[in-house]
């Protein structure tokens, strides 16, 4: 147990894994390798039809409210993966903390989207129930944002993910107004609308969205609705499911288990 703990960059001689040694030797050629690999990736996806067929998929996410510990790792990973501005006004995903008092009043907070956790609750007196709720774009089947976009710069792909074309968006912000979930923002650098894409560049390469990848407790479950044996299918089979603001009739594809009525 002691060895890995004392591991530091200076004691690399201790490592004798041959593949690792090989990589170390190759490290001079690393920039080249990087270029080659990236080029390979880009090629594979530029001609994406044979590799990835969007018509074969339909993505969704399950969120188990009772597993979320509010560590904010998902928020951080999302900003890393998608190059979201670090200022506390731009989030593709964020975590809210609900505290419902026995008097009935509810307070909600999400300091900096929960990216560095939550300040301690000073007094637990009077708390009836309290929990965390991760939020993100609901990837609606009937997305109001797509409906209102005047030019077709935001759209639903054939696999059901709602995306933004940042080279075509005119920045009218109507989509931001139309989203009932506050999931959209204007990226101050490109001055175009932005929001969660389910990490479209990852899922179309068979990887998980960054937030799901790093969720330590499995509170986020990602999968294909069309597949009967996906983690998501199992999630929706064994939980009572609720979506956010169902009266909006937006038909979200983010499914919450154990959601409280106070969550809006």
């Amino acid at each position: 147990m002691e060895k890995p703990l004392s591991d530091n960059p200076g004691s690399q001689e201790a490592i004798c894994d041959s593949r690792r040694d090989f990589l170390h030797t190759c490290s001079l050629a690393a920039p080249l390798l990087l270029l080659a690999l990236q080029a390979k990736l880009v090629r594979a996806f530029a001609a994406s039809e044979p590799v990835y067929n969007p018509r074969e998929h339909r993505y969704g996410m399950g969120i188990d409210v009772s597993r979320c510990i509010g560590c904010g790792r998902c928020v951080d990973a999302c900003k890393n993966e998608n190059d979201v501005p670090r200022e506390p006004f731009y989030f593709r995903t964020w975590v809210e903390r609900y505290v419902i008092n026995s008097g009935g009043d509810t307070s909600v907070d999400s300091p900096n989207g929960g990216i560095s956790g939550f300040p301690a609750i000073t007094s637990e007196k009077g708390i009836l129930r309290t929990f965390f709720v991760p939020k993100l774009c609901n990837q609606c089947d009937d997305p109001p944002c797509v409906q209102v976009c005047p030019v077709g710069a935001t759209f639903a792909t054939e696999d059901g993910v709602v995306l933004v074309d940042r080279d075509y968006c005119i920045g009218c912000r109507y989509c931001v107004q139309a989203c009932p979930y506050g999931a959209r923002f204007i990226d101050p650098r490109s001055r175009t609308a932005d929001k969660c894409t389910f990490c479209y560049h990852r899922i179309t390469r068979g990887l998980l969205p960054a937030c799901v990848e790093v969720c330590p407790t499995g509170a986020r479950v990602f999968g294909d609705i069309k597949q009967r044996s996906s983690p998501l299918a199992r999630f929706t089979r064994f939980h009572k499911i609720h979506t956010l603001k169902p009266h909006m009739n937006t038909k979200p594809k983010v499914y919450y288990a154990d959601l409280d009525e106070e969550v809006r």
Binding site: A46, N80, A156, E158, L163, D167, Y200, R205
Partner: peptide
């Protein structure tokens, strides 16, 4: 590429798909 797959630029999907990865996956 506008209108090839719907009321949007199909090229935009490719642009998004080839974004670089930051997390490698476990």
């Amino acid at each position: 590429t506008f209108g090839q797959r719907g009321h949007y630029r199909a090229a935009a999907v490719t642009t998004i798909q080839v974004r670089p990865l930051r997390y490698a996956g476990r």
